[in-house]
């Protein structure tokens, strides 16, 4: 195992071949003109906290002036009113924006420069500047993104419907909900949402299911002693059944009206119970039915079709 791992290029090595200069370079470049003075250099280096400034004449890169150039200018007795064109480094080593990072790694050590101006391969115009710091930052960011994507990939279960053989496969998730518990209200929908992400449903479908399920969960928490959410996942639709053990809704028609609510004041102070819950479930779902018996309980059912089918 060990020798095999040793031969395999590291993730970072791979990334240096993958990432291009333009993906990590700094694009907002401060530049100077040849007839600017070393005083301008001092001001920019200090204010922008950078270490080198490209010098541009007529859209053409003609030099670069760095902290070293500034110090040498002072040591040689030159004043701060000296023109940049007399003190800058003229034979500038540049890199192309479509170069791969790996091509630069050696360059930094070999040439002893801290930064390279980046030019476009065709137009030869300056498009950015790159330092070792930019490369490290770029690599770290890419590593983080890749790691995140890998994590989702590892857990991805979207192939499950293809893996199991039947005429019609349905996944069922059950979630128990405790009435009155505002500390954890919302948690069960959150778990369901995560499963839908893993199953590879589209974000818009997940958003609709999550919002409607969250409202159903809140209703059980607010009004009932206990209940459960049963989510049935088909490849083409999600159906949710929210069942509770009472007290039931005396007037279902009224309860469906926007703004109608029987919630006590303390619930309103928690930001719920303003009569928008059931209308929300209706709006976000494709089909909805509500049955309720006083003293027995409520059975809410809604269906959301996944977008995949329409495409």
């Amino acid at each position: 195992m060990k020798t095999k791992d040793h031969k395999k290029p590291s993730k970072i090595q791979e990334l240096t071949y993958e990432l291009k200069v333009e993906q990590v370079m700094c694009k907002n470049v401060t530049t100077l003109k040849p007839d600017n003075t070393m005083n301008d250099v001092r001001r920019i280096l200090r204010n922008k906290k950078i270490s080198g400034i490209p010098v541009i004449d007529d859209d053409r890169l003609v030099g670069i002036v760095s902290i070293e150039d500034f110090l040498i200018c002072l040591l040689e007795g030159g004043g701060i009113n000296e023109k940049v064109e007399n003190k800058m480094t003229k034979n500038v080593v540049t890199v192309y924006s479509d170069d791969h990072i790996v091509q630069l790694v050696g360059k930094f050590d070999r040439d002893g420069y801290g930064r390279f101006p980046v030019v476009d391969r065709d137009t030869k115009k300056l498009v950015g500047i790159i330092t070792k710091g930019d490369i490290i930052e770029g690599l770290l960011k890419k590593l983080e993104i890749d790691y995140h994507e890998e994590e989702i990939h590892t857990y991805r279960a979207s192939h499950i419907f293809e893996d199991v053989i039947s005429d019609n496969s349905i996944l069922i998730f059950k979630y128990r909900i405790k009435g009155g518990d505002f500390k954890t209200a919302g948690e069960q929908t959150s778990k369901l949402r995560k499963n839908l992400l893993r199953l590879g449903f589209l974000p818009e479908t997940i958003r609709r299911v999550a919002i409607a399920a969250f409202e159903a969960e809140m209703n059980i928490v607010i009004y009932t002693p206990e209940g459960e959410l049963v989510a049935k996942i088909h490849p083409e639709k999600v159906t949710i059944n929210a069942i509770d053990s009472g007290p039931g809704i005396p007037d279902v028609k009224k309860a469906m009206r926007q703004g109608y609510s029987t919630a006590p004041d303390w619930v309103r102070e928690l930001g719920f119970g303003a009569g928008m819950g059931l209308p929300n479930i209706k709006n976000y779902s494709d089909e909805m039915t509500l049955e309720s018996k006083v003293n027995e309980g409520t059975n809410l059912n809604f269906v959301i079709y996944t977008k995949k089918n329409e495409d």
Binding site: G259, S261, D265, R268, E269, G271, A274
Partner: peptide, 25 residues
């Protein structure tokens, strides 16, 4: 604001109140 307790506590005399609430309270 939409939380009645908050409006009771913090609004000032003469304020125009902007809210989502339609309850008679």
């Amino acid at each position: 604001g939409d939380l009645l307790s908050d409006v009771l506590a913090n609004s000032k005399k003469g304020n125009m109140w902007v809210t989502l609430q339609i309850h008679q309270n």
